[in-house]
Amino acid sequence: MNILVCISQVPDTTTKVKFTDNNTRLDTTGIQWVINPWDELSLTRALELKDDASSGVAKVSVALVGPVSTEPTIRKALAIGADDAYRVDTEALDAYQVAAQLAEVVKAGSFDIILCGIESSDYNGSNVGGMLAEFLNYPSVSGISNLDVKDGQVQVSREIDGGKEMIALPTPFVGIVQKGIAKEPRIAAMRGIMMARKKPIQIVESAPVEPLSQTLAFEPPQPRPACNFIDPDNPEQLITLLQNEAKVI
């Protein structure tokens, strides 16, 4: 059984984002790029499954849509333990265009499980996984916080109001991953980094797909009003404010 993990690169989570060109583009000066956190969790779970002989998972690949400048991020995924990688050689323009490119990678390969993070920490779209599933006409489950594979049988679980539901589904499918699926992302060891240099990155020519949307400009969020400080010995006042001013309890 083979797993493909779709990854994207995002600014490190401590980045103070800034914009350039009249606020139309992200200022990438000094940005440290990392694997999108939820994609990294997906990769971690895929590698955990590969380490478990009873899962039947033989190979873990990663795919990324982006220009050559994204290769250090792909190398990180390889250093963590992915076996090989695909890079679709084009700028990522919107979720639709990215998902369409990834669909071509899936069609050309032989994958049983495709994993995507629930969202990316840059555009927060939550769209690529579901779009990819629809392009492929594969079943999908969104927001999975567990993925088990035993002798080729797959079960995922997702949180619902009041608890969890366990869902069985046939391969191939797209699993859209939420926090909880794996504990901590793995850290690449020196051996992994050395080995990653020799692992193959297959460059895929992009398919001619136009994006459906375009980001025109960025702006800072509206500032929040100043905090109203309440005497710690008078919690009753907080309750009154929440009841009568904010009207939220």
Binding site: F19, S121, D122, N124, S213, F218, E219, P220, P221
Partner: peptide
């Protein structure tokens, strides 16, 4: 909202 609430984007 984009960048986890650190900016707003005008999307066409």
């Amino acid at each position: 909202r984009v960048f986890s609430g650190n900016a707003l984007a005008g999307l066409e």
